[in-house]
């Protein structure tokens, strides 16, 4: 038989990559999550997450830090994105670049700089919790601004004019038209900030000086202690939570996926 090159063959390299580095590891993780140290099937790993105080407190602080970070990012990011996208600034693009350039500087370097700054103004030892939140906001803010900016800049100006034409003043127009129209951006911004801030333990390690344990750290700890089963179980649970979250916010819809695609 003659070997024919078809367009679908172009995806072979990625399919291999996907199988080796995404699907296989997940299967391995699943195996460990549902087995005990002897290799027998068990659900004990999941049960002990909810009975173990350390694990529970890690879940709680992870969720609360992630929620707080996301909320602050949204409160800071929305006005910035709105001004950049809609107020017709002459140098809007340049300003946007200013907000994004920090992303190009090495992440660990940025965090250590922030740590030194905290030490300088004497707040490094005050609250590991808030230091972590500030660090996360600092790191993830661009991920909130970017998708918001892209949805706001795409918004049809005639909708705003129509709203004003129909008697709504600027504030009402903002509430009734701008916010609903920018929802895809809000959702993808939230997704892009909330998910990493649940697990990014490097920030809590450096800025919280390991006084605070979030889920990511907990997983690392279990793996370091050679308890792969527990580590895998928590990872799987996190994966499930994120899956549900994405599904609830419509992240699998075509529309939202498009908005996110532009955001990235």
């Amino acid at each position: 038989m003659k070997l024919r090159f078809a367009r679908k063959h172009l995806c072979i390299p990625y399919a291999l990559f996907l199988a080796l580095f995404v699907i296989a590891p997940i299967l391995i993780m699943l195996y460990y999550a549902f087995t005990d140290s002897e290799g027998g099937f068990t659900l004990m790993n999941f049960a002990s997450i909810f009975s173990d105080i350390t694990a529970l407190s890690a879940v709680l602080s992870s969720v609360s830090i992630a929620l707080l970070t996301t909320a602050i990012c949204l409160i800071i990011g929305y006005p910035v994105a709105y001004i950049l996208a809609r107020s017709g600034l002459k140098h809007g693009k340049t300003l946007l670049l200013l907000f994004i350039t920090p992303m190009w500087i090495n992440f660990v370097m940025r965090l250590n700089a922030l740590k030194e700054f905290f030490a300088l103004i004497n707040i490094l030892d005050k609250s590991a919790y808030f230091n972590t939140v500030i660090g996360m906001v600092y790191d993830f803010l661009p991920f909130m601004i970017l998708p918001l900016y892209t949805t706001l800049i795409k918004m049809d100006n005639s909708l705003i004019e129509a709203s004003q034409d129909l008697g709504a003043n600027k504030i009402k127009t903002f509430v009734n038209v701008v916010i609903p129209q920018s929802m895809p951006g809000v959702i993808s911004g939230i997704t892009m900030v909330f998910m990493p801030s649940m697990t990014n333990y490097v920030i809590s390690d450096i800025l919280g000086r390991s006084h605070i344990t979030i889920l990511g750290k907990l997983i690392e700890n279990y793996f370091m202690q050679n308890n792969w089963n527990m580590g895998a179980a928590i990872s799987m649970m996190l994966l499930a939570v994120m899956f549900v979250f994405t599904w609830l916010t419509g992240g699998f819809n075509d529309d939202a996926a498009n908005a996110k695609g532009v955001g990235l």
Binding site: S158, L159, E161, V177, P180
Partner: peptide, 8 residues
């Protein structure tokens, strides 16, 4: 409006 500008 020219292109209707209905609120989607």
């Amino acid at each position: 409006f020219q292109r209707y500008a209905l609120f989607p």
